[in-house]
Nucleic acid binder design. Structure first.
Lengths: 300, 300
DNA sequence: ATTTTGTTTTTTATCTACAATAAACATTTT
DNA sequence: AAAATGTTTATTGTAGATAAAAAACAAAAT
């Protein structure tokens, strides 16, 4: 088959779950915009809702007839986009212990194991190569460079350069800029998290990403923004499987963030620089500690 | 047809031009290694050389019978890899005046005009996207962001961060390191170029790339090295078409390079930093001046 | 006049097939 | 035994086909 209609299914589920009986639905373009899909897809959703007897559809009139049930939805396995499936599956493999640096990556084998065509795998690998974890030999295979301490060091170096730059730019933002409000909101979220820390400390990584993204956006630099994707994906997949000391780690990071936020709000370049450095140093340490030691390496 | 044998043709030409009559050729693995191809391809070359009566091939004995002529070679159009063809063709389009920022990029149309399949174009665009000049809307088209002043500014900012970092690292390289010799050689090349400057100043860009690459390698950082590709491609295609003031530009750059080299050799961090900054500032200026002004912009 | 719906066309995402190339295996030669 | 050649197999690179999704066009309703 040529293409799965996962976008349709996912959008259908997303729209259907929140339908309330006896309400009227908006126009097709409105629905499409709301769901972030084209009108063609929105119409396909309406068509199915109508066929399933969930709505009555007659031109402009779209009335919800009944509360949709779980049985009306597509099963969750059918709504993942191929790209997400491949990403998850691939990251799982390369973060696992079996994955040794220098290992060859076989497109056909990957495709078969994931249950997909080779072109999607190829395109994924090309896209993924910018994360610096794999490398291609022309006319030949991909090689896994691996999640090694070299990788972590190089990542941390660039991250520090970029974040110091972005933080300095943030400090120069004009007083009326939206970013200051966003920063305030993030500060409040930190305090809220701190309140119920024992039960909620796992939510920190989401907040962490949001905070650093806000700072990096201040740099207004596409290369810096793109690079943050690398960091985000590494942290996302890495710490998802490495939950050791999560509580202590997060407690420390929150304290550093609050300091950092205060420094930004002071707009004093030197204070910003200092607070940023403190946080980056501990982030580097956290990252380095989480690297699996390869044979012959000694813990630093 | 599925795949062009451009690799074979290109390697055949490369090997054939330097054959001398009455010499013996080395073993198949040696030939393959020399040409950077697999033994299968090396054998295909030998087979053709034999069929064309250029060599006598009997197992280990491979004697060159006659001097190959131009007619023995494949025409140059047949030896370009598809990737190179697409890159050239695409860069030509997006650097041309017709290419306006915001313009949509159509995969099928591009493929037709270049005379190739859509998959190659797709993969090229994915790879190319890391240069920050195009952007994809999911399930929809690519958009040309364009070679704008914003692009140049963002590029220059990152370049400066990276090069200052790399130059500092270079200064810390141990005395016996190969890089110091390479630097000396590059210094000599600068002096040589200066001697016949009027006739050879166009060779400068090759030397420039070599010099900066050497510096960036000192950082030992894959992200910095990858980023230098972005700079290299922009300079390569951009200045290929913008030859205005090339002589003055290059003269100035050479002087700055020599200063910069001397600073590196002094290993004095502050001197290195200062010389690097001077050169980067003028490189930035050169880049900014070369940006086509879009409507409404005023020259800075 | 503008928005909404109905219909058709264009474009992208993905799969499959197949030639070129690389890699592996087997045999021969030194 | 090691290296070279001969032969077979596996893998990548590219084209072409097709369904999903987007976009464009046309008609109808406010």
């Amino acid at each position: 088959m040529a293409r799965q209609n996962t976008l349709f299914k996912e959008a259908y589920n997303r729209y259907t779950v929140r339908l309330k009986p006896d309400t009227e639905l908006p126009s097709e373009p409105d629905i499409a915009a709301e769901l972030g899909v084209s009108r063609s897809t929105a119409r396909a959703i309406l068509m199915r809702l109508s066929d399933a007897g969930i709505i009555l559809w007659n031109k402009r009139q779209k009335t919800v007839l009944r509360q949709p049930t779980q049985a009306d939805l597509f099963p969750k396995e059918e709504t993942d986009s191929l790209h997400d499936i491949i990403e998850r599956s691939f990251m799982m493999r390369i973060m696992s212990d079996e994955a040794q640096p220098g290992m060859q990556i076989n497109e056909l084998e990957l495709a078969r194991e994931i249950g997909t065509g080779t072109s999607v795998v190829r395109e994924f690998l090309i896209r993924f190569s910018r994360f610096g974890l794999i490398e291609k030999r022309p006319n030949s295979h991909w090689t896994l460079k691996g999640f090694t301490s070299e990788f972590a060091l190089e990542l941390a170096d660039v991250r520090e350069m970029f974040e110091l730059h972005s933080a300095a730019e943030f400090g120069r933002l004009p007083p009326g800029h939206q970013a200051w409000e966003d920063l305030k909101a993030i500060e409040r979220e930190h305090h809220k998290l701190l309140k119920d820390f024992d039960t909620h400390y796992r939510d920190f990584s989401r907040l962490d990403e949001k905070f650093h993204l806000l700072i990096h956006r201040a740099s207004n630099n596409r290369f810096i923004a793109d690079f943050y994707d690398v960091i985000a994906i590494v942290f996302h997949y890495h710490f998802q499987w490495n939950k050791a000391f999560a509580r202590e780690r997060n407690a420390r990071a929150i304290a550093e963030h609050l300091d950092y936020i205060e420094a930004l709000q002071s707009r004093d370049p030197q204070r910003i620089d200092a607070a940023c450095r403190v946080h980056l140093a501990s982030a580097r340490q956290t990252l380095m500690q989480s690297i699996p030691l390869s044979a012959g390496e000694v813990p630093g």
